[in-house]
Design a protein around this nucleic acid. Structure first.
Lengths: 342, 342
DNA sequence: GGGAATTTGATAGACGTCTATCACAATCTG
DNA sequence: CAGATTGTGATAGACGTCTATCAAATTCCC
């Protein structure tokens, strides 16, 4: 009924409280034989340390640092806002979150920031990674200094980081292909693609997955080369309008991230009779509106709040030294249509 | 930097620890003037009680009771499994979960169970509600005895319960209509519907939303009267096969819950050339397989694990007397297709 | 076997809050 | 103004764990 305490462990193992404590907290000066006796007692009793009491006693605090790219990207700004709210909420659990921003796509700046982090002031880091060798090396150094590191939204492949919280972008692209293909079922024609500059890696993966599905499942629908929007609304609008005019047989549009507003405007300019199915990424006020007025048919989304919550939970688990680290439920590729808008 | 404690509050308010404690824990014997002085100090300092320390001191435990319908319904059994896992996980936070089962759709049995709950042994209840007056009355009595009550998956309309964790089923039906309509775009014909018996209320709401969307947005697609499957696989198979044979212009099928297996079999029997779009509810091993082999086009789902987590979090918040109670993020209607399967 | 080194035990106080008790002060009653 | 009543303060110990210190016991080495 009541949980065993270290007192029970000491009694069962036939040792003193001090010794139990030494074993629990990996202090030295315990003979191997004694240690195993204590561990055995812990196992038999099913003892689990009371984290609340332990943290209370040692005045533990979790000092986390979140690193995001700066810039206009509306998904990142939404993520930043969620982060601020979550930071306020977890304060009561003695978790202090500091947010840092670095120029987007600048691996050097990110690596510099990481190198400058003081293990005396930071226990764990969550970052939207730029995938580059300098970054990987900087992460390795961080870990060597005893700081926990996870990636967020955009992964850093390799063994350096201790976890990733975000969606599978190839899967996201495949899902987009699957949806758009079905929306265009029975018709044949071309598909326009708009890529932004949100994260080069993300968009490349999305394109990959998208074209995979189109090629194998919907061979009557032919993807055009992606338009490079670079977050510039007018550029997207012009280029997409031009493509739509040049190829009257465009029956679908896939927008992989930034640039949704430009795409919506280009589509609004089309003559009323023309029927184009549209799938885009990231639910924002703009894409939401376009979904409601019928310009977009579906929006793929990643829940940034859950990503933030997941990163916090994962870091805390790592810092609590839970073995194995707590499995954070994977972030899903969410599909929104007009009628399941949140 | 460090959070204020009750000692700081006492000092600032110019009173003793005892008085602060009396105010914090709503004990009587404090003059109104003194009380407001303490409250003012709390406000000025931004004091928040350290829940971990408080719970440690008073050996607080959260005793929760989850009430689920018994029977073969695979969604409910999945939910039960998730509940068992979560129960093990939250044990370390001093939360003890007891699971009770009642006959499905039996309002009297549910009300009896509620009436029998002892406030000495249970602090909070989460239940899959059957919507009936006896139940509402029983809930009111529970609340009067000081037990927190929330509904799970299936709501009990009205002010008695303190929260609901689950999806909006009208919205789910609308989403299904929206998807199936688009999948059948450009074709005209009939839509078959399969309702199970999972929860009468849920299915009625789903049908409502579904037909709404079909009527207003896809008038060329005409819904047939729903088949009542009652969890009986063979019955679903036979009736759906018969309908498919009788109406060669059926171009879509919407299965609202139980009965997916029977529907899949009926569809597998169709001649190869016939193209029917299929949308069903609840992701299970069977619906997953049907999605993978192309029998189903989309599956709508509610994440039962999150529902369980949400109910636990909500109940704990209510019991901690947080004001306002913590806003549990709403459960989303999730859409799965072959390529975004989790 | 004696001294040094290592391992273990005992004890005390801390973390922030709760509960209980008792004494003392302030207010009310008549 | 005495006595009853109510409000307040002081103190002690508890919750389960951690940290630190010092003494005692055990082991090791020559």
């Amino acid at each position: 009924m009541t949980r065993p305490t270290i007192h029970d462990v000491a009694r069962v193992a036939g040792v003193s409280l001090s010794t139990v404590d030494r074993v629990l907290n990996d202090r030295e000066g315990v003979r191997e034989k004694t240690r195993s006796r204590v561990l055995e007692a812990i196992g038999n009793l099913g003892f689990e340390r009371n984290l609340a009491a332990a943290n209370l006693s040692r005045k533990r605090r979790y000092r986390l640092c979140f690193i995001l790219p700066e810039g206009e990207n509306s998904f990142m700004r939404a993520l930043e806002a969620d982060l601020a709210e979550e930071a306020a909420a977890v304060l009561r659990d003695f978790t202090v979150i500091e947010t840092r921003k670095v120029p987007a796509f600048d691996a050097g700046a990110l690596a510099d920031l990481l190198r400058g982090l003081d293990p005396e002031a930071v226990d764990g880091v969550a970052m939207v990674a730029t995938d580059a060798t300098v970054v990987r090396i900087a992460v390795r150094e961080l870990r060597a200094r005893g700081i926990a590191v996870v990636t967020l939204v955009s992964d850093l492949p390799g063994p350096e980081k201790q976890g990733f919280v975000g969606i599978d972008n190839v899967q996201a692209g495949r899902t987009a292909g699957s949806l758009l293909g079905r929306f265009c079922r029975g018709r044949s024609g071309r598909i326009a693609m708009v890529s932004g500059s949100m994260l080069v890696r993300d968009h490349a993966e999305r394109r990959l997955g998208f074209e995979q599905v189109l090629r194998t499942e919907f061979p009557d629908q032919t993807p055009l080369a992606p338009i490079e929007g670079r977050d510039d609304k007018n550029r997207v609008r012009e280029q997409l309008s031009a493509q739509l005019a040049e190829y009257p047989d465009i029956i679908g549009v896939y927008s992989m991230g930034a640039g949704n507003r430009g795409a919506a405007e280009a589509l609004a300019d089309l003559p009323p009779g023309r029927d184009v199915a549209v799938v885009v990424h990231e639910l924002t006020p703009y894409s939401r509106e376009a979904l409601l007025d019928g310009t977009f048919d579906a929006v793929l989304h990643q829940n940034s709040r859950r990503e933030v919550q997941g990163a916090i939970a994962l870091l805390r688990g790592l810092l609590d030294d839970q073995t194995p680290p707590p499995a954070v439920e994977p972030i899903r590729v969410e599909i929104y249509m007009r009628d399941n808008l949140p």
